[in-house]
Every structure is written in C-alpha cells, then in structure tokens.
Amino acid sequence: MRAMRRLAGVICLASMIGAAGAIDGTAAFSDATQQARYEALTHELRCLVCQNQSVADSNADLAADLRRQVREMMAAGQTDQQIKSFMTERYGDFVLYEPPLTARTWLLWGAPVLLLLLCLGGAWRVIRTRSRAPMEESADERLASSPGPAHGDRS
C-alpha cells in the first residue's frame, strides 16, 4: 500500500515536470543545455496577448510563433542578448519581464530603494523625538487622560 502511494506520488511529480517544459508537445532541443537555455529565455519573455503569462507558458498563437522564433534564432547560433534585442526592437521593453535600467525605467527600479529610505527616515525621526522627550510625552498622556473617568470607575 505504501509502495503504491509512493509510486503515485512519483508519477504525479514526473507528469508535472513534463508539463512544465512541453507546452508544444515535444522538447525543442535534444541537447539538455540548449533546452535549458530555451526554457530560460522563453520564461523571460512576456506573452503580449495574455500579458500576465510568459511566452513559455502561454497557449496563445503569438506565443507559439515567438517560441518558434527563439528556437530558430538559437539554432542559428544567436546569443541570448541578440534574441532579446530582436524582441525589444519589435515589441519594446515590455516584452521583457525584467526591463533594462534606462532613463525611462529608473523610477521603476529605484522605487523600492526610495520607499525604504523614506520609511527609514520617518522611523528615525519618530525614534529621535520619542527618546529625546520622554517626560513631555508622558505629561501629554497624563493631560490627555485626566478629564476621563478615574481608573476605578469602570466597574
């Protein structure tokens, strides 16, 4: 029984691995390193019809055409950089999931750093004011709570 379960698990896993690489039915390259390069490249390219999928994952006609294009360019000995330039010359930076750092995209890339600096700055200010004037703070609190009910009133 246990052996059966283990076997079923192995079959499930194996079929998932197969499906991930074989949207076109068969592998594009018989050579394993070429196939790995092909998979990596097509995962970096965005399918433009269904904008939240990569060219590797999409069933759209255009994605199949772009996969064919990548296969042919690889078979012709083109580098990854040449293939990516081919795509961006036609479809723009949007076709890449990782847009290059340019004058138009610096804000996109810099936003996380900017936000982090902003938060750190804010936190630093709060910590400094709190630690410098602990007496004022507690006096404020006492003032604020004094017109309220006394502690014993709740019951």
Binding site: L48, V49, D61, L62, D65, L66, R90, G92
Partner: peptide, 13 residues
C-alpha cells in the same frame, strides 16, 4: 499565414 512578417512589425493582436 506563418505570422513572421507580423512579428517584424511588432503585431500582438
């Protein structure tokens, strides 16, 4: 029919 010219023109729909 093969969509090769469309790729050169950056057609996506």
């Amino acid at each position: 029919a093969e969509g090769r010219v469309a790729i050169n023109w950056g057609v996506y729909g």
